[in-house]
């Protein structure tokens, strides 16, 4: 079979670096990040979009990248856990996770952190969730629990995760303003 039918050229901007790749059309973004770009921060927990360990930000929105084909991300801006800190300082969510000790084994943590960054942005933009009441901007632990419920943590560090995300809310908004 003509291999050109099975592969595509894709341009991705990952953590600020442009990558031009020729990939099997069936590659998921998670495999591309982990196997082709050596970015192993995003984890494969289930490969079925059930656990959230692979959460990254695509054009600022959080996604389970095990369910996303890389060819569908052509031209996208992708931020993984490795791209959240700028080399000098950590992202406010990462700092909050450290301050609250919001993990045990750490395997789900990159996904939790990326998911929290995305969730806080959704909240700051006033996007409602299933538990949002009225028209006030969503906030508080109940909102955070709901929005973080797609990220499993078997060590069940949830109480500290929810506290950490709450702590980071204000500073995460500033981070978004600084980041184009």
């Amino acid at each position: 079979m003509d291999s050109r039918l099975l592969t595509s050229a894709v341009t991705l901007r990952v953590n600020g670096t442009v990558h031009r790749l020729t990939l099997d059309n069936r590659s998921t973004l998670l495999d591309t990040l982990r196997e082709d770009l050596d970015l192993t921060g995003a984890k494969k927990g289930c490969d079925h979009g059930q656990c959230g360990s692979c959460t990254v930000l695509v054009d600022g929105r959080r996604v389970n990248c095990c369910l996303l084909l890389t060819v569908a991300c052509d031209g996208s801006e992708i931020t993984t856990v490795e791209g959240l800190s700028d080399g000098w300082s950590l992202h406010p969510v990462q700092e909050a996770f450290l301050a609250r000790d919001a993990f045990q084994c750490g395997y789900c943590t990159p996904g939790q952190v990326c998911s929290a960054v995305g969730a806080l942005r959704e909240m700051a933009e006033g996007r409602p969730s299933a538990v949002t009441v009225g028209t006030e901007p969503p906030s508080g632990a109940a909102e955070i629990r709901e929005r973080m419920s797609g990220n499993l943590c078997r060590c069940a560090a949830y109480p500290n995760i929810v506290r950490a995300v709450g702590d980071a809310a204000e500073r995460a908004a500033e981070w978004w303003e600084r980041t184009p």
Partner: peptide, 19 residues
């Protein structure tokens, strides 16, 4: 006392066998 491996875990650099 906070775990020494916390920073690596928060940054996604703590290596598991799959990595």
């Amino acid at each position: 006392v906070a775990p020494a491996d916390a920073l690596a875990k928060a940054q996604g650099t703590y290596p598991y066998a799959a990595d």
